[in-house]
Structure formats: structure tokens, C-alpha cells
Design a protein around this nucleic acid. Structure first.
Lengths: 208, 208
DNA sequence: AGGCTAGTGACAGCCTCTGACAATTGACAA
DNA sequence: TTGTCAATTGTCAGAGGCTGTCACTAGCCT
């Protein structure tokens, strides 16, 4: 943020992002054109594409921050924790501290609303899932490293992350269709779904 | 397939689909325009969009058939099987019988090659994942019904499917980056990843 | 045989995204 | 302060996906 040039650039990007999110969450993603965004910020359409690879990238920018936050949390888990426990703790801690991370850029409320938009907009939801798949691969590597394993030789890191990721995506989805759109509700849901993994995998459900 | 009109329609659709898949698997998805496909079949671009909602739909048409095949297999599992076992058996049986289902439309080889294209083309992969998420929801309902549960009251059906689905997507991905692109390899991978779920969830991996 | 309708082609147009070039503006040294 | 260089932006042009409209043709039905 040294020079004037850099500050101006940052301001343009911020305006673009904030305006985009505002429009997405009010009139919907599909209903908002890039021209709308550019016009609202009073820059050319071309400029928008110089800051964001596409409409999609702007829509997922906050999610990207959250993801980075979680991955960092996983990396910082103490090595003695069992793999699944490390993932669990990282996510729970992530929810607790996400507020500050997001508020540094936009109101947390905008993030939560955007989350809904993502879950309910097919093309965004698809992109979100693809991104999740990428993240899972990198987390599997982190896990493997923690345990001193080779991801390509031992399937357990990837399997563990696949299972965990599956449950996390379920959690996100159920949160988005629920009524309580708070980070706290997200946290609570996370805990309850994770503790259902054991029971769900048990032989028969009838003998609960 | 009664009238001439219906037969002609079917032929146009077949030609469109087959040509599209052929082009996608040879020059790549992004490199193939709808105009290319339409031109190769000698119909107008507009006609392509009358048969497929978009380029994407054509690319995922076979996958859609396979999915329907699997879902049907799950529904036909004997009620006494434990949930996870029913899913496992359905998928394995699915792989065994998929050949005939696909061959009825296009050479199985085209399906396998298209699968690779999907996994390696971001936008297609994303769409594929989104579709998988939809399927998971419907399978969770099947499972709940089998067990006489309410999907919204008992989390276990959705959790079980989320876990299973996570592992299946991992399986697909690893298959697509491997060397053996046969249905048999897919089957083998499925078995080996599924049996890693237990070990991956265990407390510590070091005391294997 | 003639009316009816599904299917198609031909346009026109919107929107996302990219390349190219020129104009503007900030950075920095003389 | 001024001139030069480089970064940023606007403008234009155009490709490609996708949709609406309308007229026309070919199969269908009585």
C-alpha cells in the first residue's frame, strides 16, 4: 500500500468486489451483469476483468479467504493429534476466528448472505465444489506430511479427507437451507454431523 | 420410435451426441464450439440447443445414464442389507453391468474417454460434482426409506451418503489420473478405497 | 387432398470474456 | 520542474454460449 498507484488499485478492487457482492446478494448472481457492476463503480467492463478472472471469481472471493483460513488452521494443529481430530479442531477453531478475518474486508453479514447465494446458484455451487475438491487434495498432503506418509503410497490421507470433506459439505448445505444463518449455527451443525459419522457407518441402524 | 418423425428426431439427437463426444474427446471440450458440432452434423446451431440445454449437457449425457444406473441399483438392494453395505454392493454391481448400458448407445470406450475429459476440464468437473451432490440427496432419501426414517429428523442417512460419496469421488479421481482406464480398474479401486475408510478413521495411523 | 403441427433454419441480440491499441496517469530520475 | 518510462485504464472489435422470434418445410391425421 505504499504508492498512490497501489492505493488506487486497491480501492478499485475493493469497490468492485463490494459492489459485486452487494448486487449478487440483492438481485441475485445471474441477474447481475458485469456491466452492472462496472457501471456502479464507474469503470469500464474491461477493468472488471483485469481484477477478476470472471464474474465467478468475484462471487467466490470471500469463500477463498475462508478456505485459506481453514487450511492455515489445519497446518497449525499440534502434530500429536490424531488426523481426524486435527481436521475437526481446525474447522471448529476456524469458525470461531473467521469473523475477524472477514470483517477486515467486508461486513460478516455480507459473507453469510453470499454463502446462501452460492449454495442456491447452480453455477456457483458447482464452482464451489470444484474448489473444495482442490482443497481436499492439498489437505490430504498436509495430513500425509504430519504422519510422515506418502500420499500416493498410502490411501489413508486422501480417504480421511474425502470422508471429512463429504461431511463438511453436507454441513454447509444443511446450514444454508436452515433458518439460523449465523456462524454459531454453523459451528453447532459441524459438531453434530461429525459425531454422526460413527453411527452412520455402523452395521445396522435399527439397533441404535 | 413409432413415427418417422420420432425416428428422425432420435437420429438427429444421436448424431449430435455422438459427434459432440467424438469432438470433445479428440480436440478437447473447450476447443470444440457448438458451431463445430452443428456443422459436423449439418444442422443449425439453434437445433443443437433444441436437443441439449447447453454444451455441458451433451458432455455429461453419458454420465447421467451411469448415474441413473447406479441409483436404480441402490433401490433394488435387498432391505436386510446394512445401509453402507447396500451402497457398496450397488456400486460394485453397477460397474459390472454398466458396460451393457453404455454400449447400447455408444462404444464403452467413448464413455471412458469422456470420463477423462470431464475430470480434466474444470467447468465439466464442477458440473459433475454438482450433479453428484444432487444424486446424494436423492440416495439419502432412498436409504432413509429403507430404514423407515425421516431424512430431516435423523442425520444418519445423509451422513452415510456424504461419507460414501466422498470416497466414491476420490475413487473416480484417482482412477482418472491412473494408467488403467478400464471399468475393471474402477471396480478394483472402489473396493480398495472403501475398505480404507475404517483405517483412515481410526485414532492413530502410526500404530497400524 | 388439405389442414395442422412439430421440427428446423435463419436472424437478431444479450452476455461473458479476450486481444489489441491508444490514451491517461503515476513513478522516478535528471 | 520536467521529461521519460511503466502501469492502468478506456475503447473497439470479436469470438463463443445461449435465447427469442418468425417463417418455412415436412410428416401426420382426418
Amino acid at each position: 500500500m505504499e504508492t498512490l498507484r497501489e492505493r488506487k488499485k486497491q480501492r478499485t478492487r475493493d469497490a468492485l468486489l463490494r459492489t459485486a457482492l452487494e448486487l449478487f446478494t440483492t438481485q441475485g448472481y445471474e441477474q447481475t451483469t458485469v456491466d452492472d457492476i462496472a457501471a456502479a463503480v464507474d469503470v469500464s467492463q474491461r477493468t472488471f476483468f483485469r481484477y477478476f478472472a470472471g464474474k465467478e471469481e468475484a462471487a467466490l472471493a470471500l469463500e477463498e479467504m475462508a478456505v485459506a483460513h481453514f487450511v492455515a488452521a489445519v497446518r497449525e494443529r499440534p502434530p500429536h493429534e490424531a488426523p481426524m481430530e486435527a481436521l475437526r479442531q481446525a474447522v471448529l477453531e476456524g469458525w470461531d476466528t473467521l469473523n475477524d478475518v472477514i470483517e477486515a474486508v467486508v461486513p460478516i453479514e455480507l459473507y453469510l448472505r453470499m454463502y446462501q447465494v452460492i449454495e442456491s446458484t447452480p453455477v456457483l455451487f458447482a464452482a464451489h465444489l470444484r474448489r473444495s475438491a482442490e482443497i481436499e487434495e492439498s489437505i490430504a498432503r498436509v495430513l500425509a506430511e504430519r504422519e510422515g506418509l506418502d500420499v500416493d503410497a498410502d490411501p489413508r490421507p486422501r480417504v480421511a479427507v474425502a470422508v471429512f470433506g463429504g461431511v463438511m459439505r453436507l454441513t454447509e448445505r444443511q446450514w444454508s437451507v436452515g433458518e439460523d444463518f449465523s456462524l454459531d449455527a454453523m459451528r453447532t451443525l459441524t459438531v453434530s454431523y461429525l459425531e454422526q459419522v460413527g453411527p452412520a457407518l455402523s452395521e445396522s441402524w435399527r439397533t441404535r
